[in-house]
């Protein structure tokens, strides 16, 4: 039997469906503390492994290198540096964005890892790798204990 070349499954017998499942994720031990600090005190915390002299951000319950339990928290401040960035011209569904969005990996002084977040108050053409930025939080009453409690990072003079 010859193999048919089909580019659109709707042209043949098919069955449509979707997965109607909702998820509710607990934040876990380490991440819960991380987000409560952001929500209540506007602080970005890392977790330090003393053995490896390594600060994880976002924080973890354990060091992935040596497996020690991490109990030492480090206040990283709210300022960081653009490690790399991209400019999104389409959204998650492939629709063109009127205003392109800038997403960056932001690293903090004295910590490994970093946060992926949006950049604001800046045009794509102005963004540079190595640029200093700082977190802009939502007003405290509007914070919910998730990553969007930080509205975006903006350039620091």
């Amino acid at each position: 039997m010859a193999i048919e070349k089909i580019t659109d499954t709707r042209q043949m017998l098919h069955w449509p469906g979707h997965m109607e499942t909702d998820y509710i994720y607990t934040l876990g031990i380490a991440c819960e503390k991380f987000f409560i600090e952001i929500k209540e005190n506007g602080r970005i915390l890392g977790a330090k492994c003393k053995h490896c002299n390594y600060v994880f951000v976002p924080p973890k319950l354990y060091c992935e290198k040596c497996f020690a339990k991490l109990a030492e928290w480090v206040d990283l401040g709210i300022q960081g540096v653009v490690h790399t960035f991209t400019v999104a011209h389409i959204d998650i569904n492939g629709t063109e964005l009127k205003d392109p969005e800038i997403y960056a990996l932001i690293k903090f002084n004295g910590a490994e890892g970093g946060l992926v977040h949006k950049l604001g108050e800046v045009r794509p053409s102005q963004v540079r790798i190595g640029m200093k930025v700082e977190a802009v939080f939502k007003p405290q009453p509007n914070r919910k204990g998730n990553i969007n409690d930080i509205k975006y990072f903006k350039p620091r003079e």
């Binding site: 994720y25 607990t26 934040l27 876990g28 031990i29 380490a30 991440c31 819960e32 973890k60 319950l61 354990y62 497996f67």
Partner: peptide, 12 residues
């Protein structure tokens, strides 16, 4: 039935 830990944390 419900543990607070994430899957990674349970594995660890």
């Amino acid at each position: 039935r419900n543990l607070k830990e994430t899957g990674k944390e349970l594995a660890w």
